[in-house]
Amino acid sequence: MIVPDAAPLVEAHGLVKHFGDGKGLFTPQRPPVRAVDGVSLTIKRGETLGLVGESGSGKSTLGRLILRLIEPTSGSVTFDGQDIAALSKSRLTQLRKRMQLVFQDPVSSFNPRMTIAQVLTEPMVVHGMGDRASRIRRAKELLDLVGLPSYALERYPHQFSGGQAQRIGIARALSTDPDLIVCDEAVSALDVSVQAQVLNLLKEVQRELGLSYLFIAHDLNVVRYISDRVCVMYLGKLAEVAHADDISARPRHPYSQALMASIPSPDAHHQLRTPLAGEIPSPRRPPSGCRFHPRCSQSIDGCDRDEPELLTIGAPGEVSSVACHLFDPAPAR
């Protein structure tokens, strides 16, 4: 699936997004929410990059930064070699065509008074693609691609089940023929039986069209299944980036290990998981040093003081990167 050695489609460098650091006329200054705090990643052509982490770890914010739906506090994103922060409005609009977003709750993201035909053609109209007839033709093709009958065109969003609505959401995202789709919890609200349908659909579409996904979810097994590589995010930072099979078989970062260990499995009868102690701290006041250290069972001297960097480890060519002093070639002093 992945085009080997091709230039990456998306490259993010040192992305930072702080919310609410500006003090108001009457509001006292507070520390900002460090939603995303220095993230670099690449998404290759035809690749699915998974993004997991607990609620509030900054996954959605990172996704929106990459689409430039919000402005980064600092850092840069290049899409197909172009720095999207430097682009003019009109160039950005052109580029928007090539990146789309699929949300968690498909029905509420559609205008309830629009027919599915309008829902599907709207992005094409916005980007001035084709004439009316060709847009409708394309909408039919898209419905066919996501496995819905063409009479769906005249129906309204509420007339579809959750799984069907999510298919429509995917069809709409595909309408502008994008190179990248950010799926933000796109299957999280679906029942497992329907979730499996949508996962299959996403894979099939990728096989046919060769696009890339940034697949955000909190279910590690789902992310592992659909992704080529997986990023584990904790409090605004990447803890580990690894091959999808590695993340489940050999999680390296203590947080990835804890996350893997906390997934309940239908095959493990009456086995209580060993819960990770504590809860994710406030992103307004992240812990010093390694952000995971208050909950880490393997912390060593210096973890509360020095922030570990995301370092590539293992044999050359291996994709794993870990931000943990246990894997630091020059261990914390």
Binding site: A196, N200, N221, D245
Partner: peptide, 13 residues
Amino acid sequence: AIPRRDTPRDQEM
């Protein structure tokens, strides 16, 4: 239909 930690990634769910 449940994805598991060892569900083969190259197969359909």
